[in-house]
């Protein structure tokens, strides 16, 4: 296609992406170098019935004017990145110097907000991804053996947890496991503990969020694996069977190797989704025990005091993490393209 036509065809889509994805990334990077204005104080004479005293008071007028003149705030350089709420180099250094064992060091670092969120985000991704892969494969194998009439309804039902809005899906599960919900109340009876609440304990909250992650993401793995199963060559399976392979061995040595590209694909998608985990934390009201990178950004921006600088710094850190994670994939895609074109 000639350059001229290509340009006109792609222009609207490209303009949308540049204006609302590329520029915001740029704007986030700039914002992260600024922090909010300090409130301007002025001395006011405060006269009571007995004596006068001078007190410091916020000068709202000047503060507002300052805000209007420079909405970005004041320049702070990389200060936001290194402060306690973000990378916290100083605090990490102190903890490193003070603590003796690895355990203490990790526990100390865990108290810093960004590292806490990073811990959860990574654990979520690392725990949920393999579970999703295994469960998805087994369900696909199981559904594949069902009589044809029942396959359609089974796939329909399986799709629901994935299609449903993440916030709504997590609310539905949360209402069930909440102290008064059906599962929460049953657990209380089972453990003979009237105060047992999943929300109150950090490990249980984490498990709850992992369970949600598996519930929400398994259908995707299932559907992809199920489509893959339809393409497993009959001859290879039959040869394996004639050679005396049991069913487990057929799955282990024929089906699984055949599915490896799909495993890589699903893992990649899970990594992308895991890094942006956010809605379940809101839905499960779990932010006291578990936070994620996306949640920190949301929390900085939500409400009246908007911490643009802080949110932007976390965003830049998140974007950097995503890019590092994507590099191997990009290199592979690039090589594929060159192989095709030559």
């Amino acid at each position: 296609m000639p350059h001229r036509y290509f340009f006109w065809f792609i222009l609207p889509a490209l303009a949308a992406m540049v204006l609302f994805i590329a520029l915001p990334i740029f704007s986030v990077a700039i914002q992260s170098l600024f922090v909010e204005h300090e409130q301007v104080m002025k001395e006011v004479e405060n006269c009571g019935p007995f004596k006068c005293e001078t007190v410091l008071q916020v000068d709202n007028e000047t503060t507002a004017r300052l805000q209007e003149e420079a909405p970005l705030g004041r320049f702070n350089g990389l200060g936001t990145y290194t402060n306690r709420a973000h990378l916290a180099f100083e605090e990490v250094g102190q903890i490193w110097a003070k603590t003796e064992t690895w355990e203490d060091f990790v526990a100390g670092v865990y108290n810093l907000p960004l590292y806490k969120a990073l811990f959860f985000t990574l654990s979520y991704t690392i725990v949920v991804t393999p579970l999703v892969l295994i469960l998805g494969l087994f369900i696909a194998l199981g559904v594949n053996r069902l009589p044809p009439i029942t396959k359609g309804p089974t796939i329909f039902a399986s799709l629901l947890p994935m299609i449903v809005t993440p916030l709504i899906g997590s609310l539905i599960l949360f209402w069930m496991v909440d102290a008064d919900g059906i599962l929460g109340a049953t657990l209380q009876v089972l453990f003979q503990d009237g105060d047992l609440s999943l929300k109150a304990s950090a490990p249980l909250t984490w498990i709850m969020l992992f369970v949600y992650g598996v519930w929400h993401n398994t259908p995707f793995a299932f559907v992809v694996f199920y489509a893959g199963l339809q393409a497993v060559p009959h001859e290879t399976l039959e040869a394996a069977r004639i050679d005396g392979a049991s069913r487990w061995q057929q799955v282990r040595y024929v089906v699984v190797p055949f599915m490896m590209p799909l495993v890589i694909f699903i893992t990649l998608m899970q990594l992308m989704d895991g890094l942006r985990v956010f809605e379940p934390i809101v839905g499960f009201s779990a932010s006291a025990k578990a936070t994620s990178l996306s949640w920190i950004i949301f929390n900085d921006l939500f409400g009246d005091s908007k911490l643009y600088g802080s949110a932007a710094a976390t965003s830049v850190i998140t974007i950097t993490a995503v890019c590092i994670l994507l590099t191997p994939v990009l290199i592979r895609t690039w090589r594929d393209f060159h192989r095709k074109s030559t």
Binding site: F20, I21, L23, P24, I25, F26, S27, V28, Q31, L275, R276, F278, L293, S294, I297, F298, D300, L301, Y308, A311, A312, S315, T318, I319, V322
Partner: peptide, 8 residues
Amino acid sequence: PHITLVSG
């Protein structure tokens, strides 16, 4: 992640 864009 969409929220990083929103902060921009």
